[in-house]
């Protein structure tokens, strides 16, 4: 069996004696899309940038494609694509020049024109990067990370600042990467994004992983099914672990009164519910 694309074991990182990451472990299999979620300051960027080789860990074992990124191995960088949380550009270069310039550093790059098309910047090839909108620059970020045709891709909040259509485009790109067998580690604040893209997620809070697993299977804990309907023009919302029983009772009572439950809806706990519960709980401690 192939070793995992990314392994993290007992990772710790202190900044001037303050521990930002307090011992986290996870693995990302080859071809898997893994999401890191967590509130501002949770330690997501710290973790990702250690894996990218930018920062040195305080303790723990890590490997990307079997190599310790701290060694700054050139061969590793040839197979890794990086979208940082924020970086600048050569603003006087055009989109095409930027992508072509980046491509030459890699042994087997993708076709630059095709990469530009992939991220949805077609028609902007000859525009100066400095004149792109913020969201368009973010797409260029993605193109620059992908043009080397990496097998592991780190995306730190890749869709922040995207309009809804651009976000869908980016999701399409990540799915296409997955279909190509690429490994993706992404951080995001958008839970729908994690839910629809990630095979597995880890929720980080204050430098610790508080939950880990496929988005649909994350233990709901206290997060419950939500049953809602209208009564006398008011919305009534109820939470339950046992929706069957509750519905039976509600509908029975309504029928007995000869009424209907208007706009009845039953919703499963979403990743958002789980996330809010877990991160709030950790904050209370």
């Amino acid at each position: 069996m192939l070793e995992p694309a990314i392994t993290v074991h007992g990772l710790r990182k202190s900044y001037d004696g303050v521990e930002a990451v307090k011992g986290i472990s996870f693995e990302v299999a080859r071809g898997e899309v893994f999401g890191l979620l967590g509130p501002n300051g949770a330690g997501k960027t710290t973790t990702v940038e250690i894996l990218e080789g930018y920062r040195q860990r305080t303790a723990g074992e890590i490997a990307v494609l079997g190599i310790d990124p701290e060694t700054r191995d050139l061969e590793l960088r040839r197979h890794v694509g990086i979208v940082l949380q924020s970086t600048g550009f050569y603003t006087r270069a055009t989109v095409r020049e930027s992508v072509e310039h980046m491509a030459v550093a890699y042994p087997n790059p993708r076709d630059p024109a095709e990469t530009i098309e992939l991220v949805g910047l077609r028609g902007k090839e000859d525009q100066r990067v400095g004149r792109l909108s913020g969201g368009q620059q973010r797409r260029l970020d993605l193109a620059l990370a992908l043009v080397g045709d990496p097998s592991v891709i780190f995306l730190d909040e890749p869709t922040t600042g995207f309009d809804p259509a651009a976000r869908r485009t980016a999701w399409g790109v990540v799915r296409a990467l997955k279909d190509l067998g690429k490994t993706v580690l992404l951080t995001t604040h958008y839970l729908d994004e994690a839910q629809s893209l990630a095979d597995r997620v880890a929720i980080i809070k204050d430098g610790l992983i508080v939950a880990q697993g496929p988005p649909s299977e994350l233990s709901p804990g206290r997060a419950r099914y939500r049953v809602a309907y209208d009564e006398n023009g008011r919305r009534v919302e109820l939470e339950t672990d046992e929706p069957t029983e509750l519905l039976h009772r509600l509908t029975g009572e309504a029928l007995a009164r000869g009424e209907r439950l208007q706009n009845l809806s039953v919703s499963r706990p979403t990743l958002e519910d789980v996330y809010l519960e877990l991160t709030a709980e950790a904050a209370e401690q």
Partner: peptide, 17 residues
Amino acid sequence: FLREQGILKRMRGTPMP
């Protein structure tokens, strides 16, 4: 300028020697 803009950091993440 390149450092402040994060361009050095971007280049550092690539195989550009």
